[in-house]
Amino acid sequence: MTEYKLVVVGAGGVGKSALTIQLIQNHFVDEYDPTIEDSYRKQVVIDGETCLLDILDTAGQEEYSAMRDQYMRTGEGFLCVFAINNTKSFEDIHHYREQIKRVKDSEDVPMVLVGNKCDLPSRTVDTKQAQDLARSYGIPFIETSAKTRQGVDDAFYTLVREIRKHKEKMSKDGKKKKKKSKTKCVIM
């Protein structure tokens, strides 16, 4: 069974824990209790493949930012979460993405942009803004509501699919490099 290491990042209060708990335990946590770091595991079937999701729910508070490099190193894919009623959390996505790329030393890291709290009427981040940002990053965008469960499975499952595509691409690139290195030079 394939294991996928997913990391949920975003500013404090955007609903990272609520999304994760909704996926794992099928219930909505409405009281806000700032996370330092929590880890969850769940076995699911995605596109006919049974897999184990190892999900790291991270601290959004700035005082825990020193811990970010460590979990970013171990993560295979990242859910970059903002709240649709919090423009600052949307603007912060850029910083999370840049930090992930720096730590992973790669421009090509599996990510999904997630606009959470889409059940709320007080939207300050337009869907088109988020779609445009995701398009500019070359990553999928999904709106979710941890409260109603809308888009929750889709967000995590899409990230797994992005990781699969990335692994497939990397193995193809690896095979191309191996083929090239088999060419021999004969000096007579």
Rank of each mutant, 00 (worst) to 15 (best):
P121G: 10
Y157D: 05
S17K: 00
I55S: 06
M72A: 11
L79M: 05
V160P: 02
P121E: 12
E62F: 05
P34R: 02
K182D: 05
V45K: 07
N26S: 11
N86K: 08
D47H: 12
R41K: 04
I46V: 09
Q22M: 04
D126F: 06
I36W: 01
E3G: 12
Q131G: 11
V9L: 13
G12F: 07
K104P: 13
Y40P: 00
A66Q: 04
Q99H: 08
Y137F: 04
A66E: 04
F28L: 01
M72T: 05
E91G: 03
G60T: 00
S17F: 00
D54L: 05
S65C: 05
D153H: 07
M67D: 02
N86H: 03
F82C: 13
A66F: 15
V160E: 13
E37A: 03
G77V: 05
Y137I: 08
K128H: 05
F141L: 12
D30S: 13
D153E: 09
L53D: 01
K104W: 13
S65G: 08
C80K: 02
E62P: 09
Q43K: 13
E31H: 14
R68G: 06
G48V: 07
G77I: 07
R73C: 10
M111F: 10
V103K: 11
C80N: 04
F82T: 15
I36A: 00
D30V: 10
G48I: 05
E3Q: 14
T74A: 10
C80A: 06
M72H: 06
D30N: 14
Q150T: 11
V125N: 09
D47N: 11
E162F: 04
K167M: 09
R149S: 06
L53H: 04
V8S: 03
P34V: 02
D47R: 14
D153A: 08
R123A: 10
I84P: 15
I24N: 04
E162L: 08
G138D: 03
S39I: 00
D33L: 01
Q131D: 06
N26V: 04
S181G: 15
V109K: 08
E62T: 07
H27L: 10
K117W: 14
E49A: 10
M67E: 03
T20A: 03
G12I: 12
Y157I: 08
R123T: 11
E107M: 13
Q99L: 05
D54C: 04
T158A: 13
T183A: 12
K5Q: 10
Y71F: 06
F82V: 13
I21G: 04
E107K: 11
K175Q: 15
E162C: 03
G15Y: 04
Y96H: 10
P121R: 08
V160D: 03
F156Q: 02
G12R: 03
K104S: 14
V29N: 10
E37G: 02
C51H: 13
L23C: 14
T127E: 06
Q150R: 08
Q22S: 06
D105N: 05
G10P: 02
L159V: 06
V109I: 12
V81M: 09
R135E: 10
L6R: 01
V44D: 11
L79T: 02
S106R: 14
T127V: 07
T2N: 11
P121Y: 07
S181A: 06
E37K: 02
C80I: 10
G15C: 02
D33T: 01
S122T: 11
T124C: 09
E37R: 00
G10N: 02
I142Y: 11
F82A: 14
Q25F: 02
H27I: 10
G60A: 01
V14A: 12
Q70E: 04
K172Q: 03
S136C: 07
D119A: 15
E76C: 09
K5W: 02
K42Y: 04
F28M: 03
V44G: 12
V112D: 01
V7E: 03
L19P: 00
T58P: 01
D119N: 12
L53V: 15
P121H: 10
N26T: 08
G77L: 09
A11P: 08
G75V: 04
T183L: 03
R73E: 12
R73A: 11
Q43H: 06
Q129K: 13
R161F: 04
Q129G: 14
V109A: 10
S65F: 09
R41L: 03
Y4S: 13
L113T: 02
I21L: 04
I139T: 12
T35K: 00
K117Q: 14
R97E: 11
D108E: 09
S17E: 01
K176S: 11
G10C: 06
L19E: 14
V152T: 08
T35E: 00
L113S: 03
L113K: 02
L6A: 14
L133P: 14
D69N: 15
Y71G: 15
R102Y: 07
N86Y: 02
D47L: 07
G151R: 11
I187V: 12
G12E: 15
V81L: 11
S65I: 10
S122I: 06
K16A: 01
S181L: 12
D154T: 06
L120G: 13
V114I: 10
V45I: 07
A59K: 00
R135A: 12
E107C: 14
E107F: 04
E63P: 04
L133F: 06
T2F: 08
K178A: 09
D132I: 05
E168G: 11
E91D: 08
M111A: 03
N116H: 12
D38I: 00
N85D: 05
Y4A: 11
M67G: 04
A18G: 09
Q70W: 03
A66G: 14
M188E: 15
A130H: 08
S145H: 03
K176I: 02
R41Q: 05
G115D: 07
G60N: 00
C51S: 08
Y32Q: 02
E49M: 14
G151L: 13
Q70V: 12
G12A: 12
E62A: 05
T124I: 07
A11D: 08
Y40D: 00
E3S: 10
S65V: 08
F156D: 01
Y64D: 02
P34W: 01
L52E: 08
V103L: 11
T158F: 10
D126H: 08
G174R: 10
K184W: 05
K178I: 11
A130Y: 14
D126G: 07
A146Y: 01
P110D: 03
D54G: 09
M67T: 04
Q43F: 09
G138W: 04
F156N: 04
K42R: 13
Y157K: 15
V103W: 15
F156G: 02
L23V: 10
F156A: 06
G77T: 11
V14S: 09
G60W: 00
H95K: 10
D38H: 00
N116T: 14
L23M: 14
G10H: 02
K104M: 13
S136V: 08
K169S: 12
N26R: 10
F82R: 00
E63S: 05
F78Y: 08
A130D: 12
R135Y: 15
V9Q: 04
I139V: 08
V45C: 11
D38N: 00
S17M: 02
E62I: 04
D108F: 09
Y64C: 02
D92A: 11
Q25E: 05
I84Y: 14
I84T: 13
R164S: 11
T124D: 11
T20L: 03
K128F: 07
E49G: 08
K167F: 05
I84H: 13
I139L: 15
V152A: 07
D57S: 00
R123C: 11
I139H: 03
V103G: 10
K165T: 15
S106Q: 14
T158P: 08
L56W: 01
E31W: 12
T124E: 12
R102A: 14
V125W: 09
A11K: 12
E107S: 07
A59T: 03
K184G: 11
S136N: 05
I100D: 03
Q129M: 10
N86Q: 10
Q150K: 03
S136F: 07
N116Y: 01
D153R: 06
A130K: 12
M111G: 01
R123D: 12
Y32R: 01
K101V: 13
N26A: 13
Q99D: 15
G60F: 00
M111E: 02
R97S: 06
K5E: 10
K177M: 09
G115Y: 11
V160S: 12
E37Q: 02
Q25H: 03
P121Q: 07
Q22L: 03
D132N: 06
N116F: 00
Q70H: 08
T2C: 09
G12M: 11
D153C: 05
